[in-house]
Design a protein around this nucleic acid. Sequence first.
DNA 1: GAGCACTGC
Length: 911
Amino acid sequence: NSIPVPPPRSPPTLPPSQPAIFIPVDRSPEIQEARLLLPILAEEQVVMEAVTHNRVVVISGETGSGKTTQVPQFLYEAGYASGDGIIGVTEPRRVAAVSMSQRVAKEMNLSDRVVSYQIRYEGNTTENTKIKFMTDGVLLKEIQRDFLLTKYKVIIIDEAHERSVYTDILIGLLSRIVPLRAKRGRPLKLIIMSATLRVEDFTANESLFPARPPVIEVGTRQFAVTVHFNKRTPLDDYAGEAFRKICKIHRMLPPGGILVFLTGQAEVHSLCRRLRRSFPHRPVPDPGEGEGRKSQTWIDLANYSSVPLEEEEAEDREAGSDGDGEAGSEADLDLGDGDGAEAGECLTPGVSPVFRPAPGGTRLCVVATNVAETSLTIPGIKYVVDCGKSKRRFYDQLTGVSTFRVTWISQASANQRAGRAGRTEPGHCYRLYSSAVFADFEEFSPAEITRRPVDDLVLQMKDLNIEKSLVSAEELLISLGALVEPLQTGRYKELERAKLSCPISPLGRAMASFPVAPRYAKMLALSRQHDCMQYAITLVSALTVRELFEEFNRPAVNEEETQKLKGKRARVAQMQRIWAGQGVSLKLGDLMVVLGAVGACEFAGCTLHFCTQNGLRYKAMLEIRRLRAQLTNATNAIYPEAGLFVDPKMKPPLESQVTMLRQMVLAGLGDQVARRLPPGEVLEDKWRNAYKTPLLDDPVFIHPSSVLFKQLPEFVVYQEIVETSKMYMKGLTEIEAEWIPLLLPRYTHFEKPLESPPPSYCPDTGRVRCHRASTFYRVGWQLPAVEMDYPEGLDRFKHFAKFLLEGKVIKKFASYTSCLLSSPAVLLKTWAKLQPRTDILLQALASEGVDCREALLTTWKKSNQCEYNRRLDLDVLHCGLCAEELYRWLCSVDLLLALCVVNRCSVETTQ
DNA sequence: GAGCACTGC
């Protein structure tokens, strides 16, 4: 039943054929036999000719065709990995990269030193590696180091139809790299593998590939799946509809596993309970406990969603109460050969060992969310029940607010789900919605890049010196100090254009080398200053992984379970309070909890037992552990003097370090500050305990799970805002208002320096200091006046001149102060200009740019290179002789300054 | 006073 293969479009004249290369492969007879069944094998000739004659080739076909495992082998046999180049294959998921490399190594009878993989945390590549499977993000990082990907002769992008962000960006970059490599005489071949439906995305995009690349279509080994639509579409109760459908399938249809697609964890729980109640078997272990629970996500879906249904089923009262005649009839289980057979992806080799076969005399029923669509393959599924919906995260690019919504899936997703029924034999897919509804589905899910924040991507592109016109992300990066701020001159349009072409700063380069979001990368880059790096790394790891804690909020089925869940929630809340601590520690808020949780978990050896006891997600803790190791290595690579290591017995941070961490969080997440509405300003009830953020008009609230929920600090920084019943901030840290102007000057509008307290001279930095009040951008919150460097401008020269004459800058000058014709304070008077001597002094300082001690000494040094060079090595400020020389110099030559102000006699005596 | 799908560096 394979799709006819059109010949690849060939160029009018073929280049002279090259001598055929053939690298022998020693496959076992069993492997060879199995390969022959794969549709792709019949196309080897076609594929290889297309690759020979084209720089870019698209291979389309569902995963059942075997293209992922076979095409790299074709290329290897044709010599694409002999000599100085290797074959690279990207996958959107880690499991796929690992399992594919193992599978291909086995098929080719080669060691994993030759057919290897690389994922974020680990890999087995060697200098002998010829075929390298990797996740898409890994290859993107490699481009950052070697833009032309010189070690590869071929790059295969697998699963391109999934349109994952990294895959999208890779294809964009490779479309530019391929011609560059051709120009250099070391051609790189690009093979894009995609499901048939989405091939146009790549071939019809002329800015990607001006010459349309040839497409080779391959059939699948997929068995026919008959699709049955509901006549009616339930309004809301798709879970109930699923339940009824499962009951009917189970009662009336031949053996074979059932896979049910729902949208969320709670639904999965509740449907499983309902099924167990209706078809009781031996007790199924509670998902929240039991030693078989290796990891949360997988086991959740394995243990509690694998419901063996007994053949001698119990009376199904709930199904019996089904009043919907039409949906309840047996007609909709029609097994006749419909023409609705749809091929869908079904093959992900390396089936998860988590799924145990159903016990004898029972039927396997798996209730799952989206995971089962691409990430998991469950053996023995013959029936798919598809509610047609999925829960997706929506992200508002303007406000940064996340929401989770249950929406209709795309036609492509529905077909993907249906395909899961045809893996081992012909199957059936029951769609709990009508064909009319299906026809209204979007053809595809929107590409991921359109639905997520892009700041990290822009930074990476900048690191590659690629321009991208994404204004808001650029603004964020400028605010973080990762990009150089554009010049504030010129017309508006020029300004906008300047923004888009901001070069990357040294800080930005350092940030780009950390494989985390730019906000977190900035925290890491800053942590070097205060001996907080190991804490910052731990914090950033945990925040990147997110959702550290198990969710015990699901509705319970009976009193016993209610109590159990209540107990678990109480235990977690208690631990969170302990980890958060009191006083200074508590101000770090939910991030202190995270730090404490990771610290305690590692201290206990990161065991499953510890995680279960304390409501931590074991899988999350393992991921944090690996990310910590990676970030520690990355940090050591940038700052070798740091000498960091992952300390499993890391001590809690000192109070001073906690404060530094809070400041780092603020510096990294300066645009995610919220202020509590002062109780006196609460006019409407909806603003009670509410916070205001710069970007939202509506009130936001502290999430009840936060340890700061009852604290209600005036200023907080949040990690995210999720809109559920209200707008809730999560991941909170308390910050001090006076930090904002100092750490976030770019978000602050400063007022004029205050007259009281008066500006002062800082003997340590040699600069003029002052106090300034300020307001926070957009919302105009009044911020307390803080001490800071005096702003640039004429006034700074005035103050510096005053301090100079007062002897604050050069101590020795103090002895001359009494000889001055007028008090140094005259310089600050509005009428000072009327005194020519003060004006001449100011002009002299300004023309040399002398408004701090360093500038003064530099100018002096420059002007008196020969005369005073030797003495400058001495400490000018404390050596009387030098100070006098300096003073004389100031009076006589270059700056002319004191002459005009200082009493003539005094000058004569010193000269 | 609550309830979040999945994935990658």
